[in-house]
């Protein structure tokens, strides 16, 4: 993170300005249809906020995003082995990146929580683990683009998150653990193997099975919607 103090970009000098701000929040441009899950429509609303930030640098929309996500991102960063001071630095980097990268957000591809999770995860790798994060670049000439729209995207962003939520709750505790520990606690399979007293291979195959089970249950939910 550079030391430049260019004020044109990030709308807040301090994040608590944003958090404590009483800026009016514009009427929801929610696209959730009547009868959909409350959470699904909340995801659609957050997606609309991200779009507003992307299209016109909408600060009120950014404030709303921050109010919703900052406590969650912070909790995630604290679990991942950072102390409070470090977590707040990374939290700040995360929301600076949300502001900067909002234009790259595509609501057909990702729900807002997944997108912000990925940004916070990368900030955590960068700042707390001090490693580089290798990533593919869709504009790389060597990149193989997606063929046709995939079936997976037939579910709206919010619906998909809701489907994953219910699929997760249908997993056994053992299977949920091998997903929760890496994703939320930031533990490697080797660390999980020590924590659970299992061979490394067992932990990895359990993770593969949990992922497979989740995929199947999503496919079943998609079938049910047809």
């Amino acid at each position: 993170m550079g030391k430049s103090r260019n004020v044109i970009g990030f709308p807040y000098r301090r994040l608590d300005e944003a958090f404590g701000s009483d800026a009016p929040v514009p009427a929801a441009a929610a696209q959730g249809e009547p009868g959909t899950y409350v959470r699904a429509s909340e995801a659609e609303r957050m997606a609309a906020r991200l779009q507003a930030v992307a299209e016109r640098g909408d600060r009120a929309a950014f404030t709303e995003l921050f109010r919703h996500f900052a406590p969650r991102v912070r909790a995630y960063l604290l679990r991942g082995g950072g102390d409070a001071g470090r977590a707040d630095d990374v939290l700040q980097q995360t929301f600076e990146a949300v502001w900067r990268k909002a234009k790259l957000y595509d609501r057909r591809r990702a729900n807002p929580a997944a997108w912000i999770f990925a940004i916070a995860r990368n900030a955590r790798i960068d700042s707390i683990r001090r490693e580089r994060r290798p990533e593919f670049d869709p504009q790389d000439p060597a990149f193989r683009p997606d063929p046709a729209p995939e079936g997976e995207r037939a579910l709206a962003a919010g619906q998909r998150a809701e489907a994953v939520r219910s699929a997760l709750s249908a997993l056994s505790d053992e299977q949920r653990d091998v997903l929760w520990l890496p994703f939320y606690e930031g533990e490697t399979y080797a660390q999980i193997a020590i924590r659970l007293g299992l061979p490394l291979g067992t932990v990895k195959s359990r993770a593969r099975l949990a992922f497979q089970r989740l995929r199947r249950s999503l496919a079943a939910q998609r079938e049910g919607l047809k």
Partner: peptide
């Protein structure tokens, strides 16, 4: 993308 949805849901 699905893995990141899992992360988002947990967060």
């Amino acid at each position: 993308a699905l893995a990141e949805v899992i992360g988002g849901v947990m967060m």
